[in-house]
């Protein structure tokens, strides 16, 4: 735990010094007025010139006790429309997977950029929900319409 909290405060400092344009990421405020370093909220802007561009998409980043040995868990809101997002909102991404590409050196910046990339560049080989996966594979028109509708709903999300 000692390592987790030290590292998370370092992450907060790193983010303050340097973070990609249009993103935000910060620990959630608890009822007692402190910030909970193990629970972050972040906003991911859709990439320019993609069907995702109009939205800023909310995610929560949850850090386990044995972070950074273990990766954090990243979640969109429930029923978020994307082929690699489970109905519960959990994101299926290799850098967040302990058995695949997670390394302790991966920073919060790497994570949010990875999620942004996943939005406009889904991985058809790891489907996590039926509706978005099906539309992405078989009905691009429907997929595009749904993504754009969703983007509108997340237009005004901010810190």
């Amino acid at each position: 735990m000692s390592l987790a909290k030290t590292r998370l405060q370092e992450e907060r400092k790193l983010w303050r010094k340097d973070h990609p344009f249009g993103f935000f990421a910060k620990p959630e405020k608890s009822a007692d007025g402190s910030l909970d370093l193990t629970n972050w909220r972040a906003g991911i802007p859709g990439r320019k010139d993609t069907i995702w561009e109009e939205g800023i998409y909310p995610i929560t980043i949850n850090f386990p006790n044995d972070y950074p040995s273990k990766p954090p868990k990243v979640k969109f809101p429930e029923n978020f429309y994307h082929p690699n997002v489970y109905p519960s909102g959990t994101v299926c991404l290799s850098i967040l997977n302990e058995e695949q590409d997670w390394r302790p050196a991966i920073t919060i910046k790497d994570i949010v950029l990875g999620v942004q990339e996943l939005l406009s560049d889904p991985n058809p080989d790891s489907p996590a929900q039926e509706p978005a996966w099906k539309a992405f594979a078989k009905d691009k028109e429907l997929y595009t319409r749904k993504v754009k509708e969703q983007a509108k709903r997340y237009q005004n999300y901010n810190a």
């Binding site: 909290k5 620990p27 007692d32 402190s34 910030l35």
Partner: peptide
Amino acid sequence: ILGKNKLIYDFDFEDN
């Protein structure tokens, strides 16, 4: 940081 995970003060967070 108080206890396990409560950030109570830093440069950017002077609420308390």
